[in-house]
Amino acid sequence: MLKIENLQVKAGEKQILKGLNLEVKAGEVHAIMGPNGSGKSTLVQVLAGREGYEVTGGSATYDGKDLLALAPEERAREGVFLAFQYPVEIPGVNNVYLLKAGLNAIRKHRGESEVDAFEFLTLVREKMKLMQMDESFLNRGVNEGFSGGEKKRNEILQMAVLEPKLALLDETDSGLDIDALRVVANGVNSLRRADRAILMVTHYQRLLDYIEPDRVHVLSGGQILKSGDKSLALELEKRGYDWIKQEAAAA
């Protein structure tokens, strides 16, 4: 579903990604871990189309398309979703309005008709229940005055409503207490399907107790240094990242 080859990305003068390779197949969940400043967030932001980065080499192919050539909204309409590490507060733009506008943009792109108002509300209510969110959130401004945990839940709510094919989760677990983490993980797990893929960036093994990955990658210095199954995450938790860096340097 997603194939990244030799991806090189600069932010300003700084080279952040230095030839990154990664393949995520439909139905898989991949976790990317790594020390601070290794380029984890840059990777998912570049995949979602955030401006301010310069791709200096390599490619990212999504469903056979050149992902990096698409505008952010085209990526979203093709089924890419980024759950933000720091969801933006947009007072004056209604939460439910954004959900509906997003869903309709995606449906229109697929040649489907606009969502029926009743159907939409039923869908949203069901997903809100899943995310244990109060319905009063719907008519508030997007993330306006939400706590950190509420913002993260709102990200996953949006994801659950928009039903992406490729979900990118940028440190969705950060700032969550254990109960909120469970709810968020539950929301993510509900989306796992044979035709979907999830790529999540995280600092902590803890998230992986709740969302079990098929593959774990270590990103350091702008490259994937090591990949393995979920046991790699446990090993990282115990041993840190230095041994991987040394291993890579020796090779």
Binding site: A48, G49, P72, E73, I90, P91, G141, V142
Partner: peptide
Amino acid sequence: SLFYLRSRGLSEAQARALLIRA
């Protein structure tokens, strides 16, 4: 904010108009 709205599928024009409205 513009990127956030576009990443949800809204066109740039639509996102701008929404933010202006807001």
